[in-house]
């Protein structure tokens, strides 16, 4: 059997690719948390809806599925804004437990509505570039994965520029640093809530499209585990911290894959939570978290 290094490199690239989905989810969750201090456990359902929106448009139009990012992202932004307006705004400030419980209601509602609309049989579509692989550092990499990694990086750069360079982005950051202060400065924080929720949902929608084009199967129930993992990542990294999310993602990705190699794939989910628990025991605010709420 050929030796270790190229295998490590290969696993690394898959980790990077799988990480794209997690990163898009985790950053969306983080953005929402930063601005609203709300944790949406139903975030994975946006991923699932993004996948099905892509699938539906693909089935109707036959366009290159990558192009359908322009459909899935706006539609999910719209859905996100609606859900923020109808479900989260009315309960804002009534207690953290309520936010968690309302997400459970949303999970049941969205998953089963999707099962009614699209049936719960699994779906898969084939990317037009499916059979093309290119060699990068001696590792065979499907072209699709390369596009996905690049797309994710572009989306993140776009998000960074939006948050740093535009008025709206600056207002959002101000809100997330100090809500009361922002309010005093004349920032419409409720608008910021809506926008951040919309962007978060849109990022999850983009992740959904990327999930579909990479030839992964999807069902109405696919969202829960990635969302829980994304949430574990931002807890490990520290709520509200973007570098924390990236470090958290890397730790979790490495640990899961290491677990598959050593103690077996059955431990894949358990190991993420074990790490989460260990981190919380020793640093209850997460690795990069600020101590204050």
């Amino acid at each position: 059997m050929t030796g270790g290094l190229d295998i490590v490199l290969q696993v690394g690239i898959w980790g990077l690719y799988a990480g794209c989905i997690y990163i898009l989810l985790a950053i969306g969750l983080n953005l929402i948390f930063g601005v609203m201090k709300v944790v949406n456990f139903a975030h994975g359902e946006f991923l699932m809806l993004g996948a099905y929106v892509t699938f539906t448009f693909y089935a109707i139009s036959g366009f290159n599925p990558y192009v359908l990012l322009v459909a899935s992202v706006p539609i999910l932004i719209l859905i996100g804004v609606t859900i923020e307006r109808l479900c989260f705004r009315p309960i804002l400030g009534t207690g953290k437990l309520n936010e968690i419980f309302i997400s459970i209601g949303l999970i049941y509602l969205i998953q089963n509505a999707a099962a009614v609309i699209w049936t719960d049989e699994y779906r898969i579509i084939h990317s037009p570039f499916e059979s093309i692989t290119i060699s990068v550092f001696g590792v065979n990499l499907p072209l699709d994965y390369l596009i996905i990694i690049i797309t994710t990086i572009l989306i993140l750069i776009g998000l960074y520029l939006f948050l740093r360079k535009t008025r709206l982005g600056k207002a959002m950051r101000a809100t997330s640093q100090n809500r009361k202060g922002a309010m005093l400065m004349g920032i419409n924080v409720e608008k910021m809530d809506m926008i951040s929720f919309g962007i978060g949902a849109g990022l999850a929608g983009a992740a959904g499209t990327l999930w579909v084009v990479s030839g992964q199967v999807f069902t109405p129930y696919m969202g829960s585990i990635p969302a829980v993992k994304a949430f574990a990542i931002i807890i490990i990294g520290g709520l509200g911290s973007i570098p924390g999310a990236i470090v958290g993602g890397i730790i979790l990705g490495l640990a899961e894959n290491f677990a598959i190699f050593t103690i077996g794939g059955a431990w894949k989910d358990a190991i993420s939570f074990l790490i989460l628990i260990v981190v919380l025991i020793f640093k209850p605010t997460g690795l990069f978290g600020e101590s204050a709420e």
């Binding site: 456990f41 968690i100 829980v228 949430f231 807890i235 989910d269 358990a270 939570f273 074990l274």
Partner: peptide, 18 residues
């Protein structure tokens, strides 16, 4: 805090099953 608690308990059920 509440969110962490929710995650830890959720994960604990998975760990126990495993």
């Amino acid at each position: 805090k509440e969110w962490f608690l929710a995650m830890v308990t959720f994960g604990f059920a998975i760990i126990i099953q495993t």
